[in-house]
Design a protein around this nucleic acid. Structure first.
Lengths: 135, 135
DNA sequence: CTTTTTATGTTATTTTTTCTAACACTCATT
DNA sequence: AATGAGTGTTAGAAAAAATAACATAAAAAG
């Protein structure tokens, strides 16, 4: 219950997050832009990430290493709140440009998940290591 | 056992630490200069604090709010490693300017501890709040 | 009761880090 | 061939943090 508070507490700078996740700043910002994370901001507009943010980024990374694209990741991560975009009910309106139906997404996910054959998926150590902080 | 790794992992910037502890940067740097903490450094020489560092700072703060001075805090915290100064055995040599004998320190501590009468000692909330991260 | 020392505030200047925005490129899809 | 997705790279501006110096109130020492 009180867990939420400390898991959502803004603690980490960009530099630390890139070290923890081995993502580039570019990637992190892009994922934010896509609504996958919503890090807090300092007074001067610098990003401040929480444990949840880092957890989420590691999850995103692992999914994308499997070849899943942003749309797919979005779908997988829905339910876990970056509340500003996934506002209210499970599906607000599918609106917007991408214009993918649920069926489309499902097909896409299945296709992409089935091709988890190749790809070396490294740096598991990190995900394992950091996740010990919470949970 | 593996706890040490994550408790000593360099994670927090100065800005975050000052928020967590409600110490000023000046104070944090001074305490470092006095050998009470040994935060890691980034490539560009910026301080990176671990959970242990923050814990330690909160402890220092609480002691000083009771009127204990740096020498006293040093004594109280000895045993908990800022390894570079407290190298090897419990007492390397007392050398240097301060030149305090153990008896002196004991006297000093007793005197200062006995005057914990007044002083409002606020912000206990924070110490309680953060310590839930580990332990 | 002066003099010193402690712990901290303040200010100035320089480095480091981060930000946004733009443009480029690769690869997959159309 | 054209398009779009994800990321790299670069440039310039802004924020955060570093060091260092000087200032000072309160406590300690003499």
């Amino acid at each position: 219950m009180r867990d939420d508070i400390r898991r959502n507490m803004p603690l980490f700078s960009m530099g630390i997050v890139t070290k923890l996740t081995e993502l580039t700043p570019r990637q992190v910002r892009y994922y934010e832009q896509q609504g996958l994370i919503k890090p807090a901001r300092s007074k001067g507009k610098q990003r401040l990430f929480s444990f949840n943010d880092v957890d989420r980024l590691l999850h995103i990374k692992s999914l994308m290493e499997k070849g899943i694209n942003i749309a797919g990741v979005k779908e997988v991560l829905s339910g876990r709140e970056p509340e500003t975009l996934s506002r209210s009910a499970p599906r607000p309106e599918k609106a917007e440009r991408p214009n993918l139906s649920d069926a489309d997404l499902h097909k896409l996910l299945k296709r992409q998940l089935s091709e988890l054959s190749a790809r070396p998926n490294q740096s598991h150590l990190i995900r394992g290591e950091l996740s010990r902080f919470f949970h």
